[in-house]
Design a protein around this nucleic acid. Structure first.
Lengths: 176, 176
DNA sequence: TACTTTGTTTAGTACATACTAAACAAAGGT
DNA sequence: ACCTTTGTTTAGTATGTACTAAACAAAGTA
């Protein structure tokens, strides 16, 4: 492999690393994914250590996180004790996986927070600050409606087993 | 205002703060927005200081950031030197604003990175590692296609001057 | 059983960043 | 002109976290 090609590849890898940290993921995750993505076939943890410059520990944890997100997947080889991983090349599949992951974690908690607040407000005895209470209920209901819409969207996307450019184009038709 | 109502409101504010930091924004931003959102009418910086417990400096910078994102907006009062801010209650408007903001910052840089790498690869002289080069081009093109799709989507949304539940429902029809 | 190979976990470190406190700037009011 | 009010900027601090280094675990091999 020529020096030119290697330079281009490294530049790309650095770009993915920055992007990773911008989106709130560890820098190392971006590096690891980029290395796997620009490599045909699977790589072992040791190979990832040498290619990324990260330590075994970092590679171990970040690789697991990437697999959890569905951005990479194990590619086991028989009669080999090593763990091999390959990049997921179907981005739409990865996106669905990421959405599903994030969905179950924190987004639901936010939705629940609003729901709970509303329920508590409804159960409040009528008192002097009825106007204030009504105002709060109104605002929270607006927020809940918005959350519900987002919720429906992400659920629809994650349920979709085929999401590709074709689907995107159809959506675009509506939005324009 | 009864103690009950105050408790519920505070609980909600804390929830928004957590959500804020989960999505990569400072905790204080979530606090400030929640305080404004649960208050009818506008608030001055000083009032925000007392209500959030943050210092003047933090309120100043975070409020500006929120305004930049379109999540709150100035609500000036004539014959008053103070700056007043109110929450943006139209979430879809806010979403469009946030998308536009993020779009111009880092997403474009990632897209450019891929584009550049591809251009450099195309301009490479044919050499021994032609197979490797072709492989890289293929992968990067796939990534570019995906980025283009996302790009089109966000652009479409940000251009939209009316995005509401109705539009979301239409999109849902396609996705199901 | 001991040794090697592989991956995980943990203790510690370095770094980024959101915040506080205080100096500063700007603009009105007296 | 001077003081007060309001908001911004800056220097310093504290907290979280991604990483390194090294101990540990597990499982095959001699």
């Amino acid at each position: 492999m020529g020096p030119q090609l290697e330079t281009i590849r490294n530049h790309f890898i650095e770009g993915m690393s920055s992007m990773s940290q911008f989106w709130g993921f560890p820098r190392g995750m971006g590096t690891l994914f980029a290395v796997l993505f620009t490599h045909p076939g699977a790589l072992s943890l040791d190979e990832l250590v040498t290619r990324t410059g990260l330590t075994k520990g970092a590679v171990s944890t970040n690789v697991r996180a990437l697999a959890r997100l569905g951005l990479i997947h194990p590619a086991p080889r028989m009669a080999d004790r090593k763990d091999y991983y390959a990049a997921e090349t179907d981005f739409y599949k990865a996106i669905r996986s990421i959405l599903a992951e994030r969905h179950n974690s924190e987004f639901d908690r936010a939705v629940t927070t609003v729901k709970e607040a509303l329920r508590e407000l409804q159960g409040l005895p009528v008192s002097a600050d009825e106007a204030e209470r009504k105002f709060l209920v109104e605002r929270l209901q607006a927020m809940q409606a918005f959350f519900d819409a987002v919720d429906s969207l992400t659920r629809a996307v994650t349920r979709l087993d085929s999401l590709g450019i074709h689907t995107v184009q159809n959506v675009l038709k509506i939005l324009k």
